[in-house]
Nucleic acid binder design. Structure first.
Lengths: 204, 204, 204, 204
DNA sequence: TATTAAACGAGACGGTACGTCGCGTCTTCTT
DNA sequence: AAGAAGACGCGACGTACCGTCTCGTTTAATA
């Protein structure tokens, strides 16, 4: 006769959700698709398979969900006083994201999702949007400061900067990536410069 | 007395090598890692599994080899008379490469390879190198024309341009990608502009 | 506090054990070693391969186990009032066993086992023993009746009778075996006679 | 215009026929059906697969042929002066045949052939016949000597003796079979006795 | 002596079964 | 009802062998 029915039986362990997604990302990051297994995730989390299948229908769903939960972490939007400073902060954050195994796993899955014709826009877009809005703030402030003319399109600049960071990570050897982890500034600086120089107002 | 011994037994069918790699890339492009199977490749190529396993030890090797054989295709180096023209040609080729299912598959595999700690530099580097050398030519000619100062670093510009194309492909929906396939110029133009403006010599 | 722990997880389907062994024997009886396949057994039983490999490590083990479970069926020991009657009952049972495809399969496997140097005595002996004990009863009663002297060795008589039935089955054509199935008495009679005459006490 | 055409080309190596069949029997005797392979036979004989498939269409044909070529070896027919002596010679020969790995392999294959509904009478019968004719001689001489009445049926006696030897081999452990190899007389004696006693004329 | 056609060693090839392992579902007992 | 454990039907893995098919080389009989 209770109106506000508490669900019967044992309640779900709320800590498991996050624990399982973390385990999934680690497993994927270390082993790749080929050796990524549900029982591997369960083992790593010290859990039975039921706990997984009660929450996700299959491997793909688990991975997508896990990736999404991580993507929201990437929220950087600081005013450092200059466009170079703002973009450096952003690019550094992204570089570190890509250098982190889990961040890289996120990218791999995004790439795979993009390939499937089943257009998982909501998933994909949410991640990209967080990057764009962060960059938009930096550009707006730059225009106010006069570092950039108001009619410059943001989109190509954003794609160039973030794409450059991605390409940089992608085209380097393991040793160079290790170096970037230690000294991100040296790697990000030249890339930010490209954007800042491109954005600077044309002299008369 | 012959030093140059012909290998014994029936020789391998040389047509099969290419046929199998093509089948593998198509299979991967359509299905992704999750549903990519050796027997699927064999079936598609109308071939027994033995023909596959005589050449490659496992799925990974087959895919890596297939990707490498495709990567060499990407050879663009034309002199159009202007930096904008040269870079547009390059970026368009790359965009079309990424919009092609097989080209995209190539990227996916490169990403996966980068993740593995087993540093497959020779593989990875060979692909990237073909891009860099193509761009280097364009920049050299630009310096000669006076469109660009001699002391501008190439590397960040290259990473920005190619990364931008990649990020562009990655962050768009299926519909937008279809549009890019039809009108690549509209998509590539703004990205090339970013680079050209960044590279232009500073006015006194 | 419970010492007698119930085994964890879903319990094995107890009906499957027998179903699988029956399917295995039928498959073997119909197709022989050459075409006997595990997936064939699984298909016939409407079962996945896992169910088989959870119970038996390989083809050989499955067949041995199956044979053993059938061998125990051969239990005949009746007192018909005369040695001839008792032995006829026994020999008829054995003849019918050999004429049955599954019974014959049992023999084939026993022969194979005997050949292997890995001496699977427990298996082999258990089958033979059931025959010997049955015959021993008949001989004991014959001695009591005075049909046979007490100091006659049982073993050679047993081997002669059962061996004769086996050789009879082995050396006949398919047509003759069909006839034996219909009229076992005509085939068994002469063989029993040989034994009875050999066993009869010597007249002074 | 030659009438007696010699076949063209390189003639078949006549030594190979026997060499290959011997290799086949050894392979089968040591490994059994399960691990009996054509390439194994070829390897053991130091020969390519072609040499095998030029002579036999498949594994089965090779084995049947090999068995048949061996069976003809079993030709014993000596007059020792007594029925016991004659039968002992025969039974000993058969016992040694069964104790020899190749002889045992012959039996295994015979058993398998008997099981198949494809009634390979010519094969099967030829082997059995050689045994029967040998025994027939011994019985004929026994009748002449007065050790046996003329109207006693031969067939059951033959089946009993040879069957007894077979059953004896079949029901013993490896150790006991080793003993029989060293002292065949001890094992054959009791079995021959059974037959001789059964065959002796009834005293008035 | 040179030609010719089959025999032969080697091994690629299209298949299929092996025995293993992971999927996603199910059934059992425990919490 | 959640959860750990593990059986189950299914199907791919990578291996090994089937019987067929090229290759190049060898070996007699013929020309």
């Amino acid at each position: 006769m209770s109106r506000q029915t508490t669900p019967l039986g044992r309640p779900r362990d709320p800590e498991l959700d996050e624990k399982l997604m973390t385990a999934a990302l680690l497993e994927y990051a270390q082993l790749g698709w080929g050796a990524f297994t549900m029982q591997g995730v369960a083992r790593r989390a010290g859990v039975g398979k039921s706990a997984l299948y009660l929450r996700w229908a299959n491997k793909e769903q688990l991975l997508l969900d896990s990736v999404e939960s991580v993507a929201l972490t990437l929220r950087v939007n600081v005013d450092t006083g200059s466009l170079t400073g703002d973009l450096t902060a952003l690019a550094t954050a992204l570089l570190e994201h890509f250098l982190d195994p889990i961040g890289w796993a996120t990218l791999r899955i995004t790439i795979d999702v993009t390939a499937d014709f089943t257009d998982l826009q909501p998933f994909q877009q949410r991640i990209v949007r967080s990057l764009r809005t962060a960059a938009a703030g930096a550009f707006t402030r730059a225009v106010e400061r006069g570092e950039m003319s108001a009619d410059t399109a943001h989109e190509p600049l954003i794609e160039s900067l973030f794409g450059a960071v991605l390409m940089h990570t992608l085209s380097r050897t393991q040793d160079e990536r290790d170096h970037a982890r230690a000294y991100p500034g040296e790697h990000v600086g030249p890339l930010v410069d490209v954007i800042v120089r491109s954005a600077r107002p044309t002299k008369k």
